[in-house]
Simulated scan of single mutants.
Amino acid sequence: MNNPRPRHPLVRRLLLGTMVLVIAGGDLLIKSTVVQGLGEGKILDYGVINIRLAYNPGVAFSLGASLPPGVVATVTAALVAVLAVILFRAAPGLSRTSCAGAALLLGGALGNLVDRMDGAGVVDYLHTGWFPTFNLADIFVVSGAALLALGSLRKTGPTGEEDSLEVPR
């Protein structure tokens, strides 16, 4: 009776799956819009950040760019699948913060995975001049990993609500 909102495993997993699909779909829609609106070489300058179209055939920081696209896609798909299994199994026990982090992490990873399936590489479009060009899915992956880690440090109170940060001893 202390926990008015039980964490039914199926409900938590369906919620996580829905959030992942919405995040990945939004990312792919934005990438499609950038590809349609910007040709190679066209730049939209917004001061600190520019929008310019680039393709990354590798993974983070173009690692593996010299490998065949099929190898990069297969390895990426395997890693995303393993991560998805782990996070979907853990979903019922995750805090809201960790669940949001898991959704961002998987949504960004899935968006980049689907984007890379055409063999051209992942569409990148955010450029700062001092950092490699990246995309919104990359931001989702990094912020999702941070939220997942932060959520694992959160203390859960008797109602199941997140109370405060507690560093494990």
Results as ranks from 00 to 15, higher is better:
residue 21 L to D: 02
residue 111 G to T: 03
residue 82 V to N: 03
residue 44 L to C: 05
residue 157 G to D: 15
residue 124 D to C: 07
residue 109 A to W: 06
residue 64 G to N: 03
residue 85 V to G: 08
residue 129 G to S: 00
residue 135 N to E: 00
residue 94 L to S: 01
residue 46 Y to K: 15
residue 81 A to R: 04
residue 102 A to P: 07
residue 9 P to M: 06
residue 88 F to D: 05
residue 64 G to Y: 07
residue 84 A to D: 08
residue 148 L to R: 04
residue 108 G to V: 00
residue 102 A to G: 10
residue 169 R to T: 11
residue 114 V to S: 08
residue 118 D to Q: 10
residue 50 N to F: 15
residue 4 P to R: 15
residue 128 T to Q: 05
residue 135 N to W: 06
residue 52 R to D: 12
residue 92 P to N: 02
residue 15 L to S: 10
residue 70 G to K: 06
residue 88 F to Y: 10
residue 164 S to I: 01
residue 50 N to Q: 15
residue 158 P to W: 02
residue 88 F to E: 10
residue 112 N to Q: 08
residue 66 S to C: 13
residue 29 L to H: 11
residue 53 L to C: 11
residue 161 E to C: 09
residue 124 D to H: 03
residue 139 I to W: 10
residue 5 R to Y: 15
residue 38 L to I: 12
residue 68 P to C: 03
residue 92 P to F: 03
residue 162 E to P: 00
residue 98 S to Q: 14
residue 122 V to D: 07
residue 19 M to A: 14
residue 73 A to E: 08
residue 150 L to A: 11
residue 5 R to L: 13
residue 137 A to D: 02
residue 53 L to Q: 10
residue 81 A to N: 03
residue 73 A to M: 13
residue 86 I to V: 10
residue 54 A to L: 13
residue 125 Y to C: 03
residue 122 V to N: 01
residue 166 E to Y: 10
residue 28 L to Y: 01
residue 78 A to L: 15
residue 29 L to S: 09
residue 143 S to G: 07
residue 70 G to F: 06
residue 35 V to W: 07
residue 76 T to D: 06
residue 165 L to C: 01
residue 28 L to S: 01
residue 24 A to F: 04
residue 77 A to V: 09
residue 154 R to Y: 10
residue 100 A to Y: 11
residue 27 D to G: 05
residue 45 D to L: 06
residue 40 E to G: 15
residue 103 A to N: 04
residue 167 V to P: 02
residue 76 T to I: 03
residue 148 L to N: 05
residue 37 G to H: 12
residue 83 L to P: 03
residue 99 C to D: 12
residue 156 T to C: 10
residue 132 P to H: 05
residue 130 W to D: 06
residue 134 F to Y: 04
residue 56 N to T: 11
residue 155 K to S: 08
residue 15 L to G: 11
residue 48 V to D: 11
residue 49 I to M: 14
residue 33 T to L: 14
residue 25 G to R: 00
residue 66 S to A: 13
residue 144 G to K: 00
residue 4 P to F: 12
residue 97 T to Y: 04
residue 42 K to G: 13
residue 123 V to E: 01
residue 147 L to I: 04
residue 69 P to E: 04
residue 51 I to C: 03
residue 106 L to H: 02
residue 95 S to P: 02
residue 147 L to T: 04
